[in-house]
């Protein structure tokens, strides 16, 4: 049986608060993992491991955050994600709303995509 959205929110909130060392009330749906909650690259691996354990799911390398796309010259030009790069991101990140990022495409702003609600949608899709 699929887990309810409320339960996913509550359990993701708990995982993120624990991983990132923040209070649960800071883990709001719109909070950005990197800019607002202070996440660093290694925290994504920590979050990945804990989500796997919490929800009994298997998350492939770079599935949650396909950082490798941004280091691939085929997908990035002059610090901006190319059309091919955007297509690749949309394919690999169906759980994320890339509309805002598509208007900017600056790789330095890529991490802003990762809000708490994106993580929840990712878990929803994995547990459906």
């Amino acid at each position: 049986m699929a887990i309810s959205q409320d339960e996913i929110h509550s359990r993701v909130q708990n995982v993120l608060a624990d991983c990132l060392g923040v209070d649960e009330d800071e883990v709001t749906p719109d909070a950005k993992l990197f800019a607002d909650l202070g996440a660093e690259s290694i925290d994504i691996l920590d979050v990945t491991f804990r989500l796997e354990k919490e929800f009994d799911i298997k998350i492939q390398e770079s599935e949650l955050v396909p950082q490798s796309v941004l280091s691939d010259p085929a997908f990035v030009s002059d610090g901006k994600v190319t059309d091919a790069g955007m297509a690749e991101l949309k394919t690999r990140m169906p759980h994320a709303d890339l509309t805002e990022f598509d208007g900017d495409r600056n790789v330095d702003n890529f991490t802003d995509i990762f809000t708490v609600s994106v993580i929840e949608k990712f878990v929803e899709a994995k547990t459906a």
Binding site: D46, F49, E52, E61
Partner: peptide, 10 residues
């Protein structure tokens, strides 16, 4: 070891 994969381990 709690978890180990290609990226790292906990």
């Amino acid at each position: 070891v709690e978890r180990i994969d290609q990226s790292g381990a906990s």
